[in-house]
Amino acid sequence: MSVKISTRVSSVQFAGGNVKLTLVTDAESVSRLTRADLSELQGKVVTADLMPESIEVVTYLDEEGKPTVTYTCDKGVWAEHKQEQINLIDEEQLTPKSDMVAIADIDKFILSANYLEYNGDINPKEVVQGLVNGIEMAQLAEEQDVSQSYLEDELLKARKHFAPYTLASLAK
């Protein structure tokens, strides 16, 4: 039996060399399964791919509270701008600021951006468009002659790369 559901990690406990994860999902996500199906899984070894629904973006602020890196859009072309001489600032003088960006928002950004510069091994726009069109990740991986886990890892790298750009686009 193979089931794909979205869950929330409710708790994590570390004891005796084991980790106990409690995952919670809404009833609708598992509505196609009977109580017997779910009971059958209890105590069994299952394979789970844990992937975040959002990505953390850490922005470092200088002593004046200004971000050391900003992202701007000019005629549909996004660019990253680093403060001049940022490498001269002592790390201890920087204040980290954390924000979360939903993967759905990152995917919307990837699809809507006119021009994306990305030096990864995949074309993230092509992969996200395939997913939006209902193509399974396994099929997309097969079409690109890579493993599914490799394609998933590369897409996560691309999403992390574009997360700060997405955050900037949402702030406008």
Rank of each mutant, 00 (worst) to 15 (best):
L33C: 09
N119V: 13
L33R: 04
L155N: 11
T72D: 07
T34E: 14
V69F: 05
V30S: 03
Q139G: 01
E56N: 09
T95S: 09
R8P: 00
E28G: 06
L38K: 14
R32F: 12
V58H: 10
Q129F: 11
S11G: 05
W78Y: 11
V12R: 07
Q85Y: 15
E56I: 12
Q83N: 08
L94C: 10
Q144F: 06
S6P: 02
D90L: 14
L170Q: 10
E63P: 08
V146M: 14
P124E: 07
S54T: 02
T72Q: 11
L116I: 02
P124T: 01
A79Y: 06
A113F: 04
E143Q: 13
A15Y: 15
V127A: 07
F162P: 00
V128D: 03
R159D: 01
G120Q: 07
I110F: 08
L88S: 10
A138G: 06
K97M: 11
G65V: 04
D107I: 02
D107Q: 11
R35V: 02
E40P: 04
I89A: 04
A158M: 05
D121C: 07
L116N: 00
H81E: 13
A163H: 01
D49F: 05
D49T: 01
L167W: 10
L61G: 02
D145P: 00
